[in-house]
């Protein structure tokens, strides 16, 4: 059923709660979305729940997850056991974190880390050649040098490329990237995005791109979920983002300074507590009917 409609991930009423000394913290509230093999952005400011949503898909959040449905193809990700997760994590869904400095193992060479990532799903003889192939796929000019390099010998952009190469070793169907380019310089950032773009196109992969940068997401992704206070307040096609109707989205768009439209004063965001409370009934929120 689901395969036919091309839905690879189906999330319905996802809730994540944390127990804190000050009581329960409801980090993610009734988040629902479905995605195909597309570039889906989850955008929000700090504390919006975007990172927790991404981590919940891989079962990596520390909080308590509850949902009506959290399914990858036909596999429910709710209550999966350790063996079940091993089938999913890294093989079918992979994740790229913000800063390669902290997500690469400092005491292993890049090559060893790539091989380790591919070991379980590839034949022993082909792992090494595949690792070099993947380094080439992320546009690293001298794959052999990077293969033998230690993480500290790589620049930020190079490290992030190596990280993406590692995540691609097992040919995942879905890649979750949590602020993958925030630690990078602008030009390097765009180069890394171009690599991700190509991979989505050529390898038929889904990408969840978690970011705080509305402008970047507008130009890079296909579809955007905007989160505020744990809730999805609006869902839009990226190209229509400027036509957003929710006051939060409008406010975010208006308050970022732009090079070619200098203003005397930046608009500021007047926050409305109701955004985090009211059910996400903003117009244009019909996730299943949009997308490629």
């Amino acid at each position: 059923m689901q395969e036919k409609s091309g839905i690879i991930l189906d999330v319905e009423d996802l809730n994540i709660r944390f127990d804190t000394p000050k009581g329960e913290f409801h980090a993610v509230k009734d988040v629902s979305f479905r995605m195909r093999r597309e570039k889906l952005a989850i955008v929000g400011e700090s504390g919006s729940g975007k990172t927790q949503t991404g981590r919940a898909i891989l079962g990596l959040t520390q909080g308590r997850i509850s949902a009506k449905r959290l399914a990858f193809h036909d596999t429910s990700l709710l209550g999966l056991d350790a063996a079940g997760w091993r089938q999913i994590r890294g093989r079918r869904i992979a994740m790229v974190m913000q800063d390669p400095k902290y997500s690469l193992n400092p005491v292993m060479t890049i090559g060893d880390q790539l091989i380790e990532a591919g070991q379980r799903s590839l034949a022993p003889g082909s792992v090494r050649s595949r690792a070099l192939e993947m380094l080439e796929a992320v546009k690293i000019r001298d794959p052999l040098r990077v293969f033998n390099a230690w993480p500290h010998e790589l620049s930020g952009g190079m490290g992030q490329r190596a990280m993406i190469a590692m995540m691609l070793m097992a040919e995942p169907e879905l890649l979750i990237a949590d602020e993958p380019t925030s630690a990078l310089d602008v030009t390097v950032r765009l180069q890394v995005l171009a690599i991700l773009d190509d991979l989505v196109k050529t390898r038929d992969m889904g990408l969840i791109f978690i970011s705080h940068d509305l402008n970047l997401v507008r130009t890079f992704c296909d579809r955007v979920l905007i989160m505020y206070g744990g809730r999805v307040v609006e869902t839009r096609m990226a190209r229509d983002l400027r036509a957003a109707t929710h006051p939060y989205t409008q406010g975010l768009l208006a308050c970022s300074p732009e090079i070619d439209r200098p203003t005397r004063r930046l608009a500021t965001l007047q926050r409305d507590p109701a955004w985090a409370e009211a059910p996400a009934a903003a117009p244009g929120a019909a996730p299943a009917d949009t997308g490629s």
């Binding site: 602008v186 030009t187 390097v188 950032r189 765009l190 180069q191 995005l193 171009a194 773009d197 402008n215 970047l216 507008r218 130009t219 890079f220 732009e258 090079i259 070619d260």
Partner: peptide, 20 residues
């Protein structure tokens, strides 16, 4: 190049980058 890169993602811009 820096200015174009700051305006958001554009495939054509990326292709035009002179290598650093």
């Amino acid at each position: 190049q820096l200015m174009l890169a700051s305006k958001g993602y554009d495939r054509a811009v990326v292709n035009s980058f002179t290598d650093t």
